[in-house]
């Protein structure tokens, strides 16, 4: 289990990196390496050139402006998780990040790398979908911003073109007065989720949900919004019956086939339960934040 042969470059500027990536059709970006290195060690990936972006200063740091949390490409999971400003601006993020792998992996793996890797069961893509964020990419033909809904295609595939570098991700701050919740079911702590559900809920003065967003990972080939479930809950007081119906509607969106870790039927049950629990939890938090 040793990596195959490749060439390696570690440019200092984004411009050089873009040129390097474009120079070879089999080049790949190397960020934290926490997904790419296992693939190399198993010889499941065979890039001819690795463009290591870790020394590019423009790709470092987290900032918050205009209702957006801007996470540059070389931001490690753990940095985002521990950033006090981010905790204030959107507590959902830290809560979710704690479910990504383990601390030593989060110390190296990057948030944007996780988005680019686009595992259908990964947590960070779910957060981007749930919040309606976006990814900014830059290639030889310039910079463009891709909305979360359009970014994730299917398992391990995104709208990023091969010669583009994802330079940053933009996560909206949590809308004022909203409650949030995320939980997932894994067989082992830190594993990719069998299924995970995130919820953001805002209530009106009468306790009815006037803004509700739900998303799930692990249930399809990409993270998905649970629109049917949102519809069923929207405008209701989130009672038992509505939660149950929403859970069932969410379960109906589970398309993942049986695999060695879970049957489709089991994933359906889990998603239904998590939707009920997460909506209730987010609503409870919304009540305290009103």
């Amino acid at each position: 289990m040793k990596p195959p042969l490749f060439r390696y470059q570690a440019p200092k500027t984004l411009k050089e990196a873009v040129i390097a990536l474009a120079s070879d059709p089999d080049a790949m970006v190397l960020a934290g390496g926490q997904s790419l290195l296992p693939a190399l060690n198993f010889r499941l990936a065979s890039p001819s050139l690795l463009v290591d972006i870790q020394h590019i200063d423009e790709l470092k740091g987290i900032s918050i402006a205009h209702g957006q949390i801007i996470v540059k490409a070389m931001t490690r999971h753990r940095e985002l998780e521990l950033d006090e400003r981010v905790r204030q601006a959107n507590p959902l993020i830290a809560e979710t990040m704690a479910h990504v792998a383990h601390i030593p992996i989060r110390n190296r793996g990057t948030v944007v790398g996780s988005l680019c890797h686009a595992d259908g069961a990964a947590e960070v893509p779910l957060v981007l979908i749930l919040l309606g964020g976006s990814v900014v990419v830059e290639g030889p033909s310039g910079r463009r911003e891709i909305e979360a809904d359009k970014f994730f295609r299917f398992h391990l595939s995104t709208a990023r073109r091969r010669d583009e570098i994802a330079v940053e991700a933009r996560f909206p701050v949590l809308p004022a007065g909203s409650g949030w919740a995320f939980d997932e079911l894994t067989r082992r702590h830190g594993d990719y989720a069998i299924a995970g559900v995130g919820a953001v809920v805002r209530l009106d003065a009468g306790g009815h949900a006037n803004d509700i967003r739900l998303a799930a990972c692990g249930v399809a080939s990409r993270p998905i919004r649970l629109l049917e479930a949102e519809k069923l809950l929207s405008g209701t007081a989130l009672g038992e019956a509505e939660l149950k119906a929403a859970g069932k509607a969410a379960a109906d969106l589970v398309s993942a086939p049986d695999d060695m870790h879970a049957t489709n039927a089991y994933r359906r049950r889990v998603v239904a339960a998590l939707v009920r629990r997460m909506v209730a939890k987010a609503a409870a938090r919304a009540r305290t934040r009103q």
Binding site: Y8, L30, G33, Q34, L37, P38, N41, I103, P104, R108
Partner: peptide, 17 residues
């Protein structure tokens, strides 16, 4: 690596430069 726990099997020595 720089004071933080990390997997040395998922790090190229090039990355540790």
């Amino acid at each position: 690596i720089d004071g933080k726990a990390a997997r040395s099997c998922l790090t190229l020595v090039a990355q540790a430069d």
